[in-house]
Each structure stands twice: as structure tokens, then as C-alpha cells.
Amino acid sequence: MKKVSIIYGSTTGNTERVAEMIKDNMAECDVTVANVCNVKDDMITSADLVLFGSSTWGYGEIQDDFLGFYESMNSGLLSGKEVAVFGCGDNDGFPDVFCEAVNLITEKASECGAKVIGEGLKVDGDVDDNIAAIEAFAKSLA
């Protein structure tokens, strides 16, 4: 059984909700979901696949809780690890930096030697308006 760790940073609860929805759609996997504030290295090193989730704030900034983890990401932790990224954003209010956190985390994971799989999931606005995309993303990784 594929072991998956979903690690997220969420301010309003939307990214946390997406993380849980992804888990619910990966029933054939052994999935652990954790707030980035509670992450231990073994949650990454022991997983076959790691999903990182962060909302985008301000003008293209990574969510506050996730930022410290992002800055500490390194090749010792991520080299050779399969990684996928998701996040929430506001395309209407910030179209030129929509879900920039997804782009930044994807780039950093790649720089650390991770094998980024799939295209990052970018959830626009209300999570309920994106259920089909979230389910498809999860099932593509299972």
C-alpha cells in the first residue's frame, strides 16, 4: 500500500479542507494528514509520496505557518522523494500571482532533488466550487 503524507499550512481552513478531501479520495493509500506546524522529518522520509499544500497570501506569499518549513526544505529530506503540490488562492483579486505558493513550493522541492509529479492543483475561491478538480487530482496520485 502506498504511504502518503499530506502536509499543509492553512489560515482560514480552506487548505486544510482540501487536504482532507484529497485524503478521502486516496482510500487505497495509507494517508497521514498533518498541519505543517506538527511535521516531523519521518513523515516525509517514510512516505512514498508527499503532498505539500499552502494557500497564497498578500501579493504571492506562502502561508505564514508554511513559510518556516519552506525555508528549511533541503535535499537531505527531499532528494528522490515523489512530491505533489496544491494550494488555494484568489484568481479574481490577484490574477498575476494566483496560487503563487504552489509555484514556489514546486520550484523549491525540485531544487531539493524531489521528483515533482503531476501539475500542481490550484484551487480558486470557494473549495466547494472545485470538488471535481480536487477529486481528480487525488485520484491521479493514488
Score class of each variant (00 low, 15 high):
S72T: 11
D90F: 11
R17F: 05
L78V: 06
G58R: 04
C29R: 01
A142N: 09
S46G: 10
L141P: 00
N14T: 15
I131N: 03
V127E: 15
A138Y: 05
A27I: 09
C99W: 00
E82C: 02
R17L: 14
Y59L: 04
S46A: 15
A136P: 07
T56Y: 12
T56R: 01
C99M: 14
T45H: 05
A142K: 06
C29H: 08
E20L: 14
N14I: 08
G89V: 06
E119I: 09
D64A: 15
K122D: 11
L51V: 09
V102R: 01
N38I: 07
K3C: 09
D126Y: 13
V36Q: 01
T15W: 06
I62R: 12
M21E: 13
S5I: 09
S10R: 00
D126Q: 10
C88L: 10
D48I: 03
C88W: 00
I131Y: 11
S54Q: 06
N130F: 12
D124W: 02
F69W: 14
G118T: 05
S46H: 11
G113M: 02
E71A: 05
Y59A: 08
S110E: 15
K23F: 05
V127T: 07
S55N: 05
D65P: 05
A19G: 12
I117H: 07
S10Q: 09
D129A: 15
A109D: 03
D42K: 15
K122N: 12
Q63P: 08
V50T: 02
E135S: 15
T15A: 12
L67T: 10
A34P: 03
K81G: 03
F94T: 13
Y59C: 07
G80A: 01
I7R: 00
F98C: 02
G118V: 07
C112T: 06
W57L: 08
G76E: 08
E61N: 14
K23E: 12
L67G: 01
R17I: 03
L104H: 00
I6C: 10
V18H: 14
G68E: 12
A109F: 00
L141S: 01
D65F: 05
A133Q: 13
A136K: 13
G93L: 01
K40E: 14
L78T: 03
K23A: 14
Y59R: 14
N91W: 08
G120M: 11
F94H: 12
Y8K: 00
S54N: 08
I44L: 06
G9Q: 01
D124M: 12
T12S: 15
G89R: 01
L121F: 08
I7M: 05
G68N: 07
A27M: 06
K3T: 14
G53K: 01
E111Y: 09
E100L: 10
M43V: 06
G9P: 04
I62P: 08
K81V: 06
V83E: 02
G58N: 07
G60S: 09
G113W: 02
N103H: 07
F66D: 00
A132W: 04
I131K: 13
V83A: 01
C29L: 12
E111I: 07
D129S: 14
G53T: 04
E28T: 11
S79N: 10
